[in-house]
Design a binder for these strands. Structure first.
Lengths: 367, 367
DNA sequence: TTGAAAGCGCTAACAT
DNA sequence: ATGTTAGCGCTTTCAA
């Protein structure tokens, strides 16, 4: 045994045997007293607890995990830990795990499917269950994971696996309604990553809502869901300007606003922009961002709670995802459509205004 | 992979015994082949690896951990997971742990010393080592932790324990120099939480730098290190205005700017504000925040790296903290001092300008 | 209700 | 270089 002195559990942590000796019962009784209180004489149990207290006994979770497989650990895997959206999800997950007496390990896929698969395999032997958030891996890789451990998926639908998702549909609908009410009749959707399930949902909802409300919409992108992506979208927007823009997410929206400002285009005066997520910092900018607030923390918390419930014997809910509600937060980046807008000065000359809904619906992006 | 039941370690995961049988060696040889490659015949080892591959054998980390105490897990404890500063530290820590083949568990103290102590006790049996970041617990509680597991402390000095800290001193000095160069001769320091070690460092460095450079400075606060705290500081500042303000951190600075703006006070025209940390979002606002960029990710990474090195046998470095360099990032919230500033219109009438350095040095805050 | 004993999968002396 | 044999601390049959 290396490093006896160092204070590891190898050294001096009291065991059930110490407790057993201390109060004159067998080790198995001590074990029972902790594992299934009630299946042991109340008085004996009291004696055991007292002795344990006296010795400072704490059950060794890894020793317990060996025969039972119950490590008391769940893993949260995020596609990109750098993304503020995931940050909030992590918060929620950590809180829920802690509340349930579980420990949460955090693993980051660094945006790479390969890293993600490796990370899963690395943690899987240690954890009781998995939460996959903004996962970038293939369906078959997810299937592999679900066969190894109970799994809950965040913001991606998957058959026969419990999923927790944002109400993208209602969120986008509210955003479209908002822009419509402000008089914007022609909109642009700035698309996020093609592989993103959320992007698909948001774009589809946007299209449907626009159709229903009689607004026109076209789609630009895909762009990386970052400030840089928003900056990159500026040129495309100049080529096919609209007075209302819906961005796949806040970062994209903020980048767009920044890029537009650098060109001297006024937001919201010339262009109204709405984001999605309401990440930390969305209200820092000028103008503060109008956005659809996603229930980020609730998402993380619900996923972990659902996972733990499952570990404790609840039948997982797999009949369609659990949908968490969103809320439109109106701030400064949207305003009434100006009637004299028809040919904005900041547009690039060639195609301004020439994009119609029909051509847009089938566009696959211009980058 | 081959039609295994796949259920979990309880069911059908192959063990060293399976591998041993598969290639006709003893279990201990298999164990050696994985634990200490080289201490086994190269040809035997090849056979073992082949068999392991064939069976899809993966060493069970918790079974390994029982006799060795090596779980391959380290814990990162943050004082408040909600704080964007800690967020960056978490990123850095996770990356470093992953790179070293370790898994990181995240625990949140929720700003409560009690929760923090409990969290430590909860994870300590499972982890090989601890990183304490922005810890709110007492010295004696830290001592307790360090006696249980190798520990590294972030942003707090502690005798005989390896510490990784931001170069608060140089950072504040640069901030003061910057304001001095811009012509601000009288400054205000907005203090953070009294219990914060970092606040102590920053205030002291501020005072010393001001003294050296012949600038006057007084201290307001303490305030909670949040946007709300900054908002709350506005009234105090009006009562004792200066053209230059150094905030304990970015959130405080951003809150102050927001509050000032609401009053119609122009930043940086009327007041120059500098923050500290350069958190995510510090450049979103208008004006973008001039701030001292703390090496947040590097801090998290260095702490975890140092911890893991220690776990691998390196002698911990305890002769004073490891100090990581900062960088002044000049953005829009600071500018040249306007000469006609002497009696700002936004000041509250009574005491404007009456605070001098002597009285300030001993002030303990006004909230 | 309690005790005795056999593992969980792996490591680490001790032999060979 | 390899095999044998005890455990790590806990749970869990199986008897009592």
């Amino acid at each position: 045994m290396p490093g006896e002195s160092g204070g590891g559990s190898g050294g001096g942590a009291p065991t059930i045997y110490d407790v057993a000796r201390e109060c004159g019962v067998s080790a198995s009784t001590v074990s029972r007293a902790f594992a299934r209180p009630g299946r042991v004489n109340v008085e004996t149990e009291a004696r055991i607890r007292a002795a344990a207290e006296r010795l400072g006994y704490r059950a060794n979770p890894i020793a317990r995990a060996l025969p039972t497989g119950k490590t008391g650990i769940v893993a949260l895997l995020v596609g990109d830990i750098t993304n503020p959206v995931n940050f909030e999800i992590i918060l929620g997950g950590e809180a829920a795990a802690g509340d349930a007496g579980y420990t949460m390990v955090l693993a980051d896929a660094q945006e790479s499917p390969r890293t993600e698969r490796e990370a899963i395999q690395r943690v899987v032997p240690t954890v009781e269950g998995l939460v996959l958030s903004s996962s970038r891996i293939s369906n078959s890789a997810i299937l592999t994971a679900t066969r190894q451990r109970p799994t809950v998926i965040v913001n991606r639908a998957f058959p026969d696996v419990p999923c927790v998702v944002t109400d993208h549909g209602y969120g986008m609908r509210r955003a479209v309604e908002h822009l419509g009410e402000l008089g914007h009749s022609s909109l642009t959707y700035l698309a996020g990553p093609e592989a993103s399930w959320a992007d698909g949902m948001r774009w589809r909802a946007t299209r449907e809502a626009c159709q229903e409300l009689g607004l026109r919409v076209h789609r630009l992108g895909p762009y990386p869901p970052t400030i840089a992506g928003g900056l990159a979208a500026v040129e495309d927007l100049r080529r096919a300007p609209t007075s209302g823009v819906l961005a796949y997410n806040d970062l994209l929206a903020m980048g767009l606003i920044r890029g537009l400002s650098q060109l001297g285009v006024n937001v919201p005066g010339d262009v109204s922009v709405v984001g999605f997520d309401d990440i930390f910092g969305a209200d820092f900018g000028t103008p503060a961002l109008t956005t659809v607030a996603a229930p980020l923390r609730a998402l993380g918390a619900a996923a972990v709670q659902h996972l733990i419930a499952q570990l404790r014997g609840t039948t997982p809910r797999v009949g369609g995802p659990i949908v968490l509600p969103v809320q439109l937060v109106v701030r400064g980046s949207t305003t009434q459509h100006s009637p004299k807008w028809t040919s904005p000065t900041w547009a690039t000359t060639d195609v301004s205004g020439s994009v119609d809904q029909a051509s847009a619906s089938t566009s696959t992006g211009s980058t």
